[in-house]
Lab assay of single mutants.
Amino acid sequence: KELVLVLYDYQEKSPRELTVKKGDILTLLNSTNKDWWKIEVNGRQGFVPAAYLKKL
């Protein structure tokens, strides 16, 4: 499993997105899109802007 660090808080703006908090370490599911990465948070899957995340 690949992990990502959340660099900035992000509030979901659609049902396909997820809310994340700065400092969270989460599972990366897909990073093929350069702008939006798919991650998992508490069993939910969704997208967060790639600029808000850093691969560990």
Rank of each mutant, 00 (worst) to 15 (best):
L7F: 02
S14R: 11
L26R: 07
P15L: 08
V4R: 01
K1R: 11
L18M: 14
K34R: 10
W36R: 04
N42H: 10
N42S: 11
K54E: 09
V41L: 14
L7W: 03
V20G: 00
A50V: 07
T27N: 11
E40I: 07
G23L: 02
L29N: 03
S31D: 14
W37R: 01
N33Q: 10
W37I: 02
D24S: 12
W37H: 02
S14M: 07
K34N: 15
L56T: 06
F47W: 15
L53Y: 01
N42T: 06
K54V: 13
K1V: 15
R16F: 15
R16I: 14
A51G: 12
Y10H: 03
K34A: 14
V20N: 00
P49H: 03
K13C: 11
D9G: 05
G46C: 04
G43F: 06
I39Y: 00
E40R: 06
D9M: 03
G46A: 06
I39C: 12
Q45P: 08
Q45H: 11
W37Q: 01
P15K: 08
V6A: 07
F47L: 09
K13D: 07
T27H: 15
E12V: 12
W37F: 05
L26T: 07
A50G: 05
L18A: 10
Q45F: 09
K22S: 09
K22H: 07
Y52Q: 04
L5F: 09
V48H: 01
G23C: 06
T32C: 11
E12K: 15
T27K: 10
V20S: 01
G23T: 01
L26E: 07
W36D: 02
F47D: 04
V41R: 15
N30G: 07
W37V: 02
Q11E: 13
Q45M: 12
R16M: 15
E2H: 13
E17C: 07
K54M: 15
E2V: 12
D35S: 13
Y52T: 07
K54H: 11
L3A: 07
P15T: 10
T27Q: 13
Y52N: 11
F47T: 03
Y10C: 01
Y52S: 07
D24A: 12
R44P: 01
E2R: 10
I25M: 06
P15G: 12
V6Q: 01
V4M: 02
E12S: 15
T19D: 04
T32D: 15
A50R: 11
V48K: 00
I25F: 05
L5A: 06
K55N: 07
Y52P: 01
E12G: 15
A50C: 06
F47M: 09
D9V: 02
N33V: 05
S14F: 08
K54G: 05
S14H: 13
D35L: 14
L5M: 13
A51L: 14
L7S: 02
D9Q: 03
V6K: 00
L53C: 06
T27S: 09
V20A: 03
V4P: 00
T32K: 15
V20L: 07
I39L: 15
T19M: 06
K13Y: 04
L3H: 13
T19S: 14
D24F: 07
K1M: 14
D9F: 04
E17H: 07
L29P: 00
G46K: 02
T19L: 04
I25A: 02
L53T: 01
I25L: 08
N30D: 15
K21S: 10
N42C: 10
Y8M: 11
G23D: 06
D35E: 14
E40Q: 09
A50D: 01
L3N: 06
K1H: 15
A51I: 12
F47I: 08
R16G: 14
L3R: 10
V6C: 07
K38W: 14
G46E: 03
I25V: 12
R16W: 15
Y8Q: 13
S31P: 05
L29D: 02
E12F: 10
V20Q: 00
R16N: 14
L18D: 01
L26F: 12
Y52H: 11
L56D: 03
Y10S: 01
L3T: 09
L53M: 06
E17S: 08
L56K: 03
Y10F: 08
D24M: 14
W36Q: 04
L28V: 07
T32Y: 11
D35N: 13
K13T: 15
G43M: 06
L28P: 00
K54W: 12
K38F: 15
P49I: 02
E12T: 10
T19K: 07
K21M: 10
F47H: 06
L53A: 01
W36N: 03
I25T: 06
L29R: 04
V41W: 13
T32M: 12
L18N: 03
E2W: 11
R16P: 06
N30F: 08
V48W: 01
W37L: 02
L28C: 07
